[in-house]
Design a protein around this nucleic acid. Structure first.
Lengths: 212, 212
DNA sequence: ACTTCTGCATGACAGATGTCACGGCCCGCG
DNA sequence: CGCGGGCCGTGACATCTGTCATGCAGAAGT
């Protein structure tokens, strides 16, 4: 095979991580129809992707953002830190500015919402491999205008616990090994920083911005 | 074309409703690869599906359960009531017993969770057209054992309002034109019927069972 | 007619939530 | 070194939430 021909017919090897099997397989099928893209490996979540990427000589990783156990952003961090040079595309249902920021910080090269046309998926794969970035300009502007997440780590922990199902302050205190007074303080601060009236509203606001 | 050959090579015309464009197009592509299935029309939500089904001579409708505006179960009801004889397959992220019950009540012939392998999708389409039902036995058992939704219509309204973002009793009262005392009463009843400790837990429990 | 059910409301009260003040400890930075 | 920020906790207090008792109105059924 001569070098010129190889360069033009290079097949991009893709790793696809998405917890819903039906959606994952459908996306793999869609990508598999592209002449220059091959889905080399699929995974149900973000765990162990560095090993998979290495084994399968993956060029681009397509990671769903919310998966049980290890999510897309954490997995992006793993892949970036691995030094394998795998390009990362994050897929998400909701275009939350905080998610975008965290994805970029984790080393992702693209951020796609599932509302986008399917054609953008293969495009994004090609672009990131070519060294480009793929981000919705409006979302980028929102993320940049929105400022950093104002919640401290502990405020975030407490608010996330509330958002994830801890029904009472006693639940949260037990979960995080804090006193109830401390829980109330952290929640109060989180409520103020999110401009909310109570924990439910604060959790919703923080989640919508991708702060949790 | 002779009758026998036509019967064996019959192409099933499918309507696919799913709000996330990328997922919808991927699923359409996947189904389009089947020799006997054609995705005749796609829709981003459950509105106006009766007209679409009629125009496109649809045999089977694949409806995502949660879509903005009119959802899958409502659309299933529309299609069933239309008398067009369209078979309905409901697609859902969460296999909630209450959702299964409501889908069946709305006339659906199949209920598939997105965690299932993609192969089950085409299978389900063929089976429902052949007059069969496609339901996970474990989920059916759970729905049958779980009993009916114990919440009255008004309790459901109030709990749904809380679950959907009304942050305070005052918000709910205003939204539903009730006094705050009445809101507190209905929530209290809903909390008890769901075996929860507060509204957050009640909303989660009711949602998990598909009662909202 | 009476009964039952649902929806709605008031009132009293206990417990949970949220706010604020305050203080101690540790760490990093200039 | 001092300072600021984050973490953690206590205490006081106002407000919100949740429970319970009670009663009224309307509709449907017997």
């Amino acid at each position: 095979m001569i070098a010129g021909a190889r360069y033009r017919s290079r097949v991009i090897r893709v790793l696809l991580a998405e917890d819903q099997a039906m959606v994952r397989e459908a996306l793999a099928t869609l990508l598999g129809l592209e002449d220059d893209i091959e889905v080399a490996v699929q995974a149900p979540n973000g765990a162990g992707l560095v090993e998979l990427a290495r084994e399968h000589a993956v060029d681009v990783a397509l990671l769903d953002i919310e998966m049980p156990g290890r999510g897309g952003i954490e997995a992006a961090g793993d892949l970036t830190a691995s030094g394998l040079g795998v390009k990362v595309v994050i897929l998400t249902t909701f275009g939350r500015p905080g998610y975008l920021r965290r994805a970029m910080e984790a080393g992702a090269s693209a951020f796609l919402v599932k509302d986008a046309p399917a054609a953008q998926l293969a495009d994004a794969v090609r672009k990131v491999l070519a060294g480009e970035r793929v981000i919705d300009p409006a979302l980028a502007a929102e993320a940049l205008a929105g400022g950093a997440n104002p919640l401290t780590a502990r405020e975030r922990d407490v608010l996330r616990a509330a958002a994830d199902g801890a029904a009472t302050n006693a639940d949260i205190a037990q979960l995080l090994h804090l006193s109830q007074g401390t829980v109330r303080n952290y929640l109060s601060l989180a409520i103020q920083k999110t401009g909310a009236r109570n924990r439910a509203e604060a959790a919703r606001a923080a989640r919508d911005k991708g702060w949790l």
